[in-house]
């Protein structure tokens, strides 16, 4: 019974983690779809958002969940600036080495994480919100339950907000004109250009939205996680692993991939060892590359065509 309890508890925490991972990966998948580049500064942009949330909490006592509304617009503008002044000019540069833009995002990541170290020191920080250790227990609802499961309140709250943001993004992409233009650019930039979509503006918007999404993820992560300057790399890895599992540039795939990775990681952490969780992450990444190069998206597509 204890085994089952452990398993279910791992599954629940993996699921909650997966929802947040999905939010990180959504932004990356969106950028990947429209720009055809992997944004390797993604985690560091999240780190920026987390520092914004941290300082707002420390200096003004603003709840991290509220700072979503400050951090996301700020990083939206930051992302637009990066796209306009760094990535778009590089697209026109001729060079022997391919993937110039990807290397550029690595440079950006180096600058961001190092600047954070210099400005805010390498200390581990967290926002001690007063509901941090609140939780709901299964025995509270069902008195005679044979097993005990708990649901941490900040985790659940973050998860629910992540779901809400994901649905909002889905509505934005599928119902509004701008969303449709973004999807058109992602499908075929040349055709979109011919049909009168301002491709460059869509790229700027997409990069902005991608950064805003990861900023939300950062604000949702900070009540349940701790913060240090080089944390970005870890979440960049999470982001691109999910993007590959989900299928490059597919937003639906990113959500499913996020859940898969979240569950897989907490399973490795529980059953193999805490330190091995990153290895599990990369093992599933390599497995996805080798056995399922199209990602989850290719399975979804095959299903649809089968009907």
């Amino acid at each position: 019974m204890a085994q089952l309890e452990l398993f279910l508890q791992t599954l629940i925490s993996g699921f909650l983690l997966g929802g947040l991972y999905a939010l990180i990966a959504l932004g990356m998948a969106l950028i990947m779809g429209v720009m055809r580049i992997i944004n390797l500064a993604h985690g560091d942009i999240m780190m920026m958002a987390m520092y914004i949330a941290f300082w707002l909490f420390t200096l003004f006592g603003i709840d991290p969940y509220v700072s979503v509304f400050i951090a996301a617009p700020a990083l939206f503008l930051f992302g637009m600036g990066v796209q306009k002044y760094l990535l778009t000019p590089v697209m026109k540069v001729e060079s022997i080495l391919p993937h110039n833009q990807v290397i550029l995002t690595v440079g950006l990541a180096m600058v961001l994480s190092n600047l954070a170290t210099v400005l805010f020191t390498g200390n581990y920080r967290s926002t001690p919100v007063n509901y941090a250790s609140n939780a709901w227990y299964l025995t509270d609802i069902w008195k005679g339950s044979p097993i005990e499961l708990s649901l941490s309140m900040p985790w659940t709250l973050s998860f629910v907000i992540a779901i809400v943001i994901t649905i909002a993004l889905w509505l934005f992409l599928s119902k509004t004109d701008i969303g449709k233009s973004i999807r058109a650019t992602s499908q075929d930039p040349d055709a979109a250009l011919i049909l009168g979509v301002n491709v460059n503006r869509m790229r700027m918007l997409t990069f902005g939205i991608g950064c805003a999404l990861v900023a939300c993820a950062g604000c949702l992560f900070i009540p349940i996680y701790y913060l240090y300057p080089s944390l970005g790399k870890q979440f960049t890895n999470v982001g691109f692993v999910i993007t590959v599992i989900g299928g490059m540039g597919s937003t639906n795939g990113a959500v499913i991939g996020g859940l898969i990775l979240g569950i897989f990681e907490s399973m490795t952490a529980t059953y193999i060892g805490m330190g091995w969780a990153p290895v599990g992450r990369f093992a599933i990444f390599v497995a996805a590359l080798v056995f399922l190069p199209g990602g989850v998206a290719s399975i979804i597509r095959r299903r649809k065509l089968g009907k």
């Binding site: 290397i103 440079g107 990541a109 180096m110 600058v111 190092n114 210099v118």
Partner: peptide
């Protein structure tokens, strides 16, 4: 302490 920042800027 900021050598990575400078390297990153040089890279860009």
């Amino acid at each position: 302490a900021a050598h990575q920042t400078i390297f990153g800027i040089i890279l860009i």
